[in-house]
Amino acid sequence: MSLIGGNRSKAPRKGAGKRNDNNRIYANPLPIIFSDSSPSRVRSILGLVGLSLTQVITPHCEGYFDPHTRSVWTCERNDSMLLWRRGFFGKGDLSRSEPTWLARRLNDRKARQGKYLTSEEIREKRRAERRQFKLDRAAAIAAVAAEAEAIFEAEGRVVVPALSGPEIPSGATWRPAPVLDGPTLTTESREMLEDQEPLEDVEHLQLTLHEAFFLSWNLDCLDILHPETDEPMTLREIWVAFQHAYLTPPIPDLPTPQLQFDNPFLIHYVAYHHYRSLGWVVKGGIKFCVDYLLYKKGPVFTHAEFAIVVCPVYEDLADQETSTTNLQNAEPFNWHWLSTINRVNSQVMKTLILTYVTIPARSRISSDVLSSPACLAQYSVREVIVRRFIPARMRD
């Protein structure tokens, strides 16, 4: 008699250990931490009167502003890992995303000492094993077919060659042959490797200007240093410098161009701030021909669910006609282009979102407000989801 709905022992799912490590390492969604070490009884009593002993722990990281690359460089490893692990800010300049150059070099050195294989060597080993499995399976199938042909010639019986069975290896039963003779290190070469100088971490975390300003203005956890004086920049200096970084390079003996409402930094920061404030992890989306990618928790947990294309919209069309800023996607886009972008992101299971950022009219607001982040209140955001129509799947 079987018990339906009884207690069943659940076996641990594959990759559970790695997921638990990621949940522990990337537990904080932002660099700031809310800490409350008071007893639960005290918290409940204070909660009745609307009080709390929660403390906000704000780290203070440093980064250098680089106007040529339009980025902020964080050179201290502790600051880089803190910003990456608490919100996935920035990108390692020598890595694909997380700054792991030093860890990879240490693994390479240990691999040369014969301790273990690097990730690249593991990948090549798996590829070689897959090739050998295909060769062994093809040889086994050919042997069974030759045996069936020999039976037909000798006895006249027709035997259908089996494509599965104990004679035919499968992915579950096949095992690579053990390697008896492998490369070994001599005592002299091992001592030479062990006596190498310690590696110096030459990688830095590269923050976009939108990420850097969000960390500096909203979270107050990043001090941005001037590239020439090494002195911390004020919020006003940061705000103006980031806008000037997107303007045409200044010509000698000519005044610096005035700030405009359609500055590319302002347009994209409005979209970045909008989604970051809603709890999304925002990363660059140039790989999929979009401006941003939205992650629910972060790149190490799941793939991005949404792809964002920022579309500037002028409140006053006269401003667009007289503007000297060549904003991307400000003109009416081609439907072939939109279909291409939508198809690319549909193939990778991402929903395309057109984010329209409305630029305030110059006739309504004075340009003096651009010297302060308070001008962001004049911008608005609208969103349109674009889904690809597939007739074979959407008939019901």
Rank of each mutant, 00 (worst) to 15 (best):
T340H: 10
T256L: 10
R96Q: 11
S80Y: 06
C311S: 13
R86G: 04
E167G: 11
Y269T: 08
P183W: 06
I267L: 11
E98M: 07
F65A: 07
K14Q: 15
G17V: 09
L370F: 03
L205E: 10
S346R: 07
L254C: 12
T256D: 10
V282Y: 00
T186G: 13
L117A: 04
L46N: 08
G156Y: 13
H60T: 15
Q196M: 06
Q320V: 06
C375N: 03
K283W: 02
R131H: 14
T355Y: 04
E155Y: 08
T248W: 01
M394S: 10
P312T: 05
Q260G: 00
S164G: 13
V313T: 00
S380V: 06
R43W: 04
L106T: 03
A143G: 04
Y379A: 03
F65Y: 15
P232N: 02
V384Y: 13
A361K: 04
G50H: 07
L222V: 03
S366Q: 10
S97W: 14
A271V: 10
P249G: 04
E62R: 13
D223F: 14
C61A: 12
R19I: 15
Y116R: 13
A140Q: 02
K91P: 05
W73H: 11
V369W: 11
I32Y: 10
T69P: 12
W84Q: 11
S95Q: 07
F301W: 04
G17Q: 15
N326G: 06
M81G: 14
